[in-house]
């Protein structure tokens, strides 16, 4: 059923006239041409599609568009403040905390959500908080270190 859905995306107001049952991941990637948010499994198991909704990490592959009505959505394209990278992005880059890079947007957004809720997590809390984000290339160690380093700077 078509309806008008308004929300904030990366700081800008968005208004879409579409079926509210559609899944946020695909609306972002297709209608809004923001392809940084990735499809990995489509059923919430890998975390590649993670975005922030009102500051909390959410799996966009499991979220109907209707669920973000009136809320603030941030994708990887909105994580940086203009030209200035987010400390997480800087630390991931600095430490080479990625190989293929396909899981990276989801890793970064999940980490951003983690730090929003717990600005100075212990290493165990970081590992625990990232447990649901999968990486096949094996950048695990560097990802945890990058999040740890970013949290200490923030």
């Amino acid at each position: 059923m078509r309806e008008t859905i308004e929300f904030t995306l990366n700081g800008e107001p968005v208004s879409l006239d579409t079926d509210g049952d559609r899944i946020l991941l695909w609306v972002l990637r297709t209608d809004l041409e923001l392809t940084g948010t990735k499809y990995g499994c489509g059923i919430g198991l890998c975390g590649s599609c993670t975005v922030l909704v009102d500051g909390e990490a959410e799996r966009s592959c499991a979220l109907p568009l209707r669920a973000v009505r009136g809320r603030e959505v941030v994708t990887i394209e909105g994580l940086a403040g203009g030209e200035v990278l987010h400390p997480l992005q800087e630390e991931f880059a600095e430490r080479g905390a990625l190989q293929c890079g396909y899981c990276t947007p989801g890793m970064l957004m999940n980490a951003a959500g983690l730090l929003n809720g717990n600005p100075h997590p212990s290493r165990e809390e970081i590992v625990d908080g990232m447990e649901g984000n999968l990486c096949r290339c094996g950048a695990h160690k560097r990802i945890i270190e990058a999040i740890d380093a970013a949290s200490k700077r923030m």
Binding site: L34, E77, A80, A93, G101, Y102, T104
Partner: peptide, 19 residues
């Protein structure tokens, strides 16, 4: 030397097959 592909992979602009 830092990998050349890294910058576009931390800001979401890298173009993979799906993108």
């Amino acid at each position: 030397i830092p990998r050349l592909d890294i910058p576009s992979k931390v800001d979401g602009s890298a173009v993979f097959g799906f993108d």
